[in-house]
Design a protein around this nucleic acid. Structure first.
Length: 555
RNA sequence: GCGCCUGUAGCUCAGCUGGAUAGAGCAACGGACUUCUAAUCCGUAGGUCGCAGGUUCGAAUCCUGCCAGGCGUACCA
């Protein structure tokens, strides 16, 4: 429609020039936008204002001339000049009716877009160390990553969701030691448990489990091997738990990628060697350094410490090289905001390995500020005091938790009040949107019971021209805007755009519902309205699906 | 000190690829259920868009400088 208006305007400029009404036939880059207020039409353009310089005339004068040459076609009801020189277009209702047909026809695909051009994109998120259960903070990253993946996929990208498992290095050894010491304690040995070990009660559970499995002889085994065994055992158990928690949070991954596998296949060493050969890595004071400074980082970074152990950065370099080798055009990492200092060096390694800067993007999710009854509630993984994602899902449900995490831009910190979240009351916006879906289902059920309206599974809209109420036209316009909302969300990588859209659609529907009856005495009007609400129902469902929230038939 | 994010109604936040009277939810106040689910709706009230400059016909939106808050600034992960 916007292109249509642009064409009409170009036409008007040309005709006005030919008739000698305008000194130039040039038209600068113009905007066609949807005004905030209904009184300003369906579309407005600033063509007169931006042409003032070229035409050497006041904007309003230009607007008057153009309007005289605009051919009001069937789709345009009226054209007005307003304010400093805006030209406002009021469209006829006919423009909006076909959207219902499109929704009913495309169903679950309505709103899908092809802007992604099938480009291969990888979204990596959560990637929490398997040293303890996921906590609330991970939940936000999980919700964001999963939804961004869904939205990109819906927008025509070829998306793969991946979880990177840090199953190598010091924290895993610490995990093994922690479990081992608990094992010894459980067999009656009086051993101190150091602060540097993981304190959570789950460590005790794991110790009991491995003791049960291995038997008492386990404690007499070689200690180094036993600690190793504990580490493997615990990491596997914890990872299983993480998978389970994510699954009940509605989050699934296409691939779980092991850090250890990068060492086993020699990829880490290969990456170091390759960069060393290009003098991107050099030795200094017994350690190996990457020249990230050459790529805009504030200082160079260590990849191999002087004790011979590699840093996280080393395997991350190899990991990201591997991602592109798998054929991804874009790689998106979802990180907690406390890792933002890591972006520069990661970018450096990506660019150094021959990729362009825009092939690597980091979604920085600001931290979740945990509150309890309005008061700050400090969590500490080390001390074993934290609220797990599982706790939250068990208490408030997957839908409410996900909706809350996605309600705001991840650029802002999120206050998560445990007391508030655990209340299953009407304050929670998820019910506001889900209620629309349930309400419409109720209407359709009722319509089905009416003998005259047995067949309500319309494959296209019926008698749509009878939809003339302001609320109905408004709903149609919102439904038509869903696709561009998806595209905006995909382009900006911001899922909350979908949230905001769903809230406006829900609000428009509730208002309509309270003012008009869908099922009336007039059969044709009823069928028209049923078509409309069926469309609303499908769009609500599609939007919720992108956020990973269910659309209940009943509430 | 430097870097990233944020600063909009009493509270929590949308709006930020510049547009015409800055929006929503909660909280406050007043209304609407013999009706397709009141987990809803309608109305009232509430704002120097952190501050100061700049660019522009036009700035919450872009630029600069301040101020405030969060996070980060390891041969930790």
């Amino acid at each position: 429609m916007k292109n249509e208006i642009k064409r009409i305007l170009l036409d008007a400029v040309r005709k006005a020039f030919e008739k000698g009404m305008l000194p130039s036939d040039k038209m600068p880059e113009i905007e066609i936008e949807e005004p905030r207020h209904l009184s300003q039409g369906d579309y407005a353009t600033n063509v007169a204002m931006v042409s003032a310089a070229v035409q050497k005339m006041p904007p309003r004068k230009i607007a008057e001339i153009l309007v005289a040459f605009i051919e009001t076609e069937r789709l345009i009801e009226t054209v007005e000049i307003a304010g400093p020189g805006f030209i406002n277009f009021f469209l006829s209702n006919d423009v909006w009716y076909p959207v219902v047909d499109r929704i009913l026809e495309q169903d679950k695909q309505y709103g899908a877009s092809d802007i992604g051009q099938n480009a291969k994109v990888q979204v990596e998120f959560v990637s929490a160390n398997p040293t303890g259960p996921l906590h609330v903070g991970h939940g936000r990253g999980a919700a964001v990553g999963d939804s961004v993946g869904n939205i990109l996929s819906f927008a025509g990208f070829d998306v793969q969701k991946e979880y990177y498992i840090n199953d190598s290095g010091r924290q895993i050894r610490t995990l093994g030691t922690s479990v081992w010491l608990r094992v010894l304690q459980q067999t009656g040995q009086d051993i101190a448990f150091p602060d540097t070990c993981y304190q959570g009660a789950y460590i005790n559970d794991l110790a009991a489990q491995i003791l049960e499995q291995e038997g008492y002889s386990f404690v007499q085994a070689d200690e180094a091997a036993a600690i190793d065994r504990c580490a493997m055992f615990a990491a596997k158990k914890i990872l299983d738990g993480i998978k389970e928690d994510l699954s009940s949070f509605g989050v699934t991954f296409d691939q779980w990628f092991s850090e250890q596998s990068l060492y086993d296949s020699g990829r880490v060493q290969k990456a170091i060697d390759a960069f060393t050969a290009r003098d991107l890595i050099y030795e200094h004071e017994g350690a190996l350094w990457f020249r990230t400074q050459d790529y805009g980082d504030e200082k160079n970074r260590v990849v191999v410490r002087n004790n011979g152990l590699t840093t996280y950065f080393a395997s991350d370099i190899a990991y990201h090289m591997e991602k592109y080798e798998r054929g991804f055009d874009r790689v998106i990492d979802v990180w907690g905001a406390d890792h933002h200092g890591y972006i520069k060096r990661m970018e450096a390694s990506v660019v150094a390995s021959g990729r362009t800067r825009d092939q690597f993007e980091v979604i920085l999710v600001q931290l979740v500020n945990l509150l309890r009854g309005g008061k700050p509630f400090q969590m500490s993984t080390r001390a074993g005091e934290f609220v797990t994602l599982k706790d939250i899902v068990d208490e408030v449900g997957k839908d409410a938790a996900r909706f809350m995490f996605l309600s705001r831009s991840y650029d802002s910190g999120l206050d998560f009040d445990l007391e508030l979240a655990k209340q299953k009351n009407a304050d929670n916006p998820v019910y506001y949107v889900q209620y629309v879906h349930a309400r419409i289902t109720g209407i359709l059920l009722k319509a089905k019971q009416e003998t005259l309206l047995r067949d309500i599974d319309f494959s296209r809209g019926e008698h749509l021209e009878l939809l003339t109420a302001a609320e109905e036209i408004n709903l149609l316009k919102l439904l038509a805007a869903f696709k561009e909302t998806v595209e905006k969300s995909a382009t900006t990588l911001h899922p909350h755009v979908i949230f905001t859209y769903l809230m406006s659609l829900a609000s428009a529907f509730h208002g309509y519902y309270n003012k008009h009856k869908v099922i009336t005495e007039e059969k044709d009007l009823t069928r028209a309205r049923l078509s409309l609400v069926l469309g609303v129902k499908k769009v609500i469902r599609n939007g919720l699906m992108l956020l990973g929230v269910s659309a209940p038939e009943r509430m």
